[in-house]
C-alpha cells in the first residue's frame, strides 16, 4: 500500500481510473504502478484509450474517478497540486510541440527557469548538456522550424529532460516521423532507458518494446488486457485479443520491413 511510497521506489500508481467522452467510456478502471527505473510500454489498437491514459497522468485530460499518484502527490484533488505533478512528469508528444519562436536552446531553458527557479546560467549549462546527450548540440541556436522531424523530437526529449523529471511519458513519439528518422529517436530513447530513466511509453514500435521494456501492457476497450514481461508478451501471449493484436501489428511491420 503506502509502503511502496515510503521506500521511495514507486513513482506512479494509478488505481481504478475511469474516463468517458460524454456517454462513451474510454477508460474503464485502469490499475497501474510503475517503480523507479522501470520501463513500461503500452500498446493497443487505436481508440483503446492508451493516449487518454497517459494524458490523465499529467493532467492534460481530466478523469471521472479513480486516483493517480505521482511520487507523493495525488492528482485530481487540488488544481494547485497539478503543478507539482507536472514538475515530476516529463512528456514527449507525437507532434513535438516545440515553441517555434524560440531557439532550441531557449526551448530547453524556459521551463527550468520559470518553473524550477533555476538561474539562467545554470539552466543554459543543463540545456547544453542534455542537447549533447540527444546529439543535437550543434543545432542549439537554430529554431525548430529549421530542423528535421527527428531532430525536433530529440530536442523535445531534451526539453523534457531539462526539468529533471522522475518519470518520462512518451505519447507515440515516432508516429509522426518519416521512417528513416524513427530509428534515431528510438536510439535516443533506448539510451535514456539504459541510463535508468523511468519511462512510460505509448508506441507501436514492438522492436523497441522487446529491447528495452520491463513490462509490456496491452490496452483494449479501455481496460488492461494483458501485462507481462516482453518475452512472455510477445512469445506466449495469454489472451486472445493480445494474439490478435500482435498478429495484426507484426504482420504490418513485416510488410513495411
Amino acid at each position: 500500500m503506502d509502503d511502496a511510497f515510503s521506500t521511495r521506489n514507486e513513482i506512479l500508481r494509478i488505481e481504478g481510473l475511469e474516463q468517458s467522452y460524454g456517454a462513451l467510456p474510454v477508460l474503464r478502471g485502469i490499475d497501474l504502478h510503475v517503480n523507479k527505473g522501470e520501463r513500461i510500454v503500452i500498446c493497443g489498437p487505436s481508440g483503446s484509450g492508451k493516449s487518454t491514459l497517459i494524458r490523465c497522468i499529467n493532467g492534460l485530460e481530466t478523469f471521472k474517478s479513480g486516483t493517480i499518484r505521482v511520487k507523493d502527490v495525488c492528482s485530481g484533488e487540488h488544481l494547485r497540486l497539478l503543478k507539482d505533478i507536472r514538475r515530476e512528469v516529463g512528456m514527449v508528444f507525437q507532434g513535438f510541440n516545440l515553441f517555434p519562436h524560440l531557439s532550441v536552446l531557449e526551448n530547453c531553458m524556459l521551463a527550468p527557469i520559470k518553473v524550477r527557479g533555476v538561474k539562467k546560467a545554470e539552466a543554459r549549462e543543463r540545456a547544453l548538456g542534455f542537447l549533447q546527450k540527444v546529439r543535437v548540440l550543434d543545432q542549439a541556436h537554430k529554431h525548430p522550424g529549421q530542423l528535421s522531424g527527428g531532430q525536433q523530437q530529440r530536442v523535445a526529449i531534451a526539453r523534457a529532460l531539462c526539468m529533471q523529471p522522475s518519470i518520462m511519458l512518451f505519447d507515440e513519439p515516432t508516429s509522426a516521423l518519416d521512417p528513416e528518422v524513427v530509428q534515431e529517436v528510438l536510439a535516443t530513447m533506448v539510451g535514456l532507458a539504459k541510463e535508468g530513466m523511468t519511462m512510460l511509453c505509448v508506441t507501436h514500435e514492438m522492436g523497441f518494446a522487446r529491447e528495452v521494456a520491463d513490462r509490456v501492457i496491452l490496452i483494449d476497450g479501455g481496460r488492461i488486457v494483458e501485462e507481462a514481461a516482453p518475452a512472455q508478451f510477445f512469445d506466449t501471449p495469454q489472451h486472445e485479443r493480445t494474439r490478435a493484436f500482435l498478429g495484426r501489428v507484426l504482420r504490418g511491420q513485416a510488410e513495411v520491413a
Binding site: N58, L60, G95, N97, F99, A111, K114
Partner: peptide, 21 residues
C-alpha cells in the same frame, strides 16, 4: 496549434508564463 498549449502545460509552466512567453 493546440499542441503549443499542451507542451507548455506539460512542462509545468504557469498560465502567465504560458501566455506571455
Amino acid at each position: 496549434d493546440k499542441g503549443q498549449y499542451e507542451g507548455a502545460k506539460a512542462l509545468g509552466l504557469s498560465n502567465t508564463t504560458m501566455y506571455w512567453s
